[in-house]
């Protein structure tokens, strides 16, 4: 058999090692980065729940500042003052998108 490239047994093992290493590394790199994005969200979430357990008061109705604002200013939940300042109405914004769709714009919804 005619030899195209000369490689010793030792060199072959070396090349094979590098190839497998590179393949595993890039596979893990891709996997790791994918997993890391997911986990980062969970890490922030976990931190929130830890902080929740550290708070002196854990229910809104027991908050001293909430009790004070309802006593002095808002009077009662969903009362007159609340409706004036804290509640809102919604606007129908569908017309503009309907127009765009009629002109041929494609959307997911």
């Amino acid at each position: 058999m005619k030899e195209i490239i000369k490689v010793t047994r030792r060199q072959f093992v070396k090349i094979a090692g590098y190839t497998v290493g590179a393949a595993l590394y890039s596979w893990n790199f891709a996997k790791f980065t994918y997993a890391a994005v997911k986990d980062n969200i969970a890490t922030r979430q976990e931190s929130v729940y830890v902080q929740d357990t550290k708070m002196k008061v854990r229910k809104s109705q027991d908050s001293p500042a909430v009790k004070k604002i309802y006593k002095d200013f808002l009077h009662e939940p969903c009362g007159h003052m609340s409706h004036h300042l804290l509640h809102t109405h919604y606007v129908d914004r569908s017309a503009r998108v309907k127009q765009l769709k009629a002109k041929g714009l494609k959307l997911k919804v």
Partner: peptide, 30 residues
């Protein structure tokens, strides 16, 4: 204090399910 003091129920608003959990802590007792 007046518009700054808060509770654990408020800090969990930052998570999905937080508003729900905080609202349930209130609704359950009422």
């Amino acid at each position: 204090f007046d518009l700054g003091d808060s509770t654990g129920a408020a800090t969990i608003f930052g998570n999905s399910g937080g508003v729900m959990e905080a609202a349930l802590r209130y609704a359950y007792e009422v």
